[in-house]
C-alpha cells in the first residue's frame, strides 16, 4: 500500500449523521493545498448522496448496524468508499428519470442521487449484493469540474 492518508468513520445509519460525514470528508479532501473548493464541494455532494442511500437502505432492511465511510487521500486524488449492510439493489435497473423538458418529469421526485453522483466525481463504482452495497467514489480535487 502507498503512503496516503486514511480517515475512517463508522456512523449510525441515521439521517442526522449525514451532515457529520459531509463535514469530515470535505475537511479531509481540503487538506491538499492544491485542492479546488468547487471540486471539494462536488465530492461533498456525492458522498452525501451515497450516505443518504445507505441510510435509506438500512431503513428498508430494518437493520441498526452502522455505515462505514472510508476516505483515502494520496496526492490530489481522493477515494471514498461507503459501505452499508442493506438489501442491495441492481444499479443497472434503477428507474430512469425523464428529461426535464418532459411533461412526465414533475411526477418523479426520486431517482436523482445516482446520476448526480456519477456526474460529480471522476469515477463511481458500485458493488451490491444481498449483504449490502459498497459505493466507491474517486475524484482528483486539483482538476476542473467535469461539468
Amino acid at each position: 500500500m502507498s503512503s496516503g492518508d486514511e480517515v475512517v468513520l463508522r456512523v449510525p445509519a441515521k439521517s442526522d449523521y449525514i451532515a457529520l460525514v459531509r463535514v469530515v470528508l470535505a475537511a479531509a479532501a481540503a487538506i491538499d493545498p492544491d485542492s479546488r473548493s468547487d471540486r471539494v464541494e462536488d465530492l461533498r455532494v456525492a458522498v452525501s448522496e451515497a450516505v443518504t442511500n445507505a441510510v435509506e437502505s438500512h431503513r428498508t432492511a430494518g437493520t441498526d448496524s452502522h455505515i462505514e465511510v472510508r476516505c483515502y487521500t494520496e496526492g490530489h486524488e481522493v477515494e471514498v468508499t461507503v459501505r452499508d449492510h442493506g438489501p442491495g439493489f441492481d444499479p443497472d435497473n434503477v428507474p430512469v428519470v425523464p428529461d426535464a423538458e418532459s411533461p412526465e418529469r414533475m411526477f418523479f421526485e426520486n431517482g436523482l442521487g445516482l446520476p448526480l453522483m456519477r456526474r460529480l466525481v471522476d469515477k463511481t463504482d458500485i458493488e451490491t449484493g444481498d449483504d449490502g452495497t459498497l459505493v466507491r467514489l474517486v475524484i482528483d480535487t486539483s482538476t476542473s469540474p467535469k461539468v
Partner: peptide, 16 residues
C-alpha cells in the same frame, strides 16, 4: 447552504 437530491425531489413535488 446545501441541497441534495432528496431536497430537489420535494421541490419537484411542490412544483407539481
Amino acid at each position: 447552504t446545501f441541497v441534495d437530491s432528496a431536497a430537489l425531489g420535494i421541490f419537484v413535488g411542490l412544483h407539481r
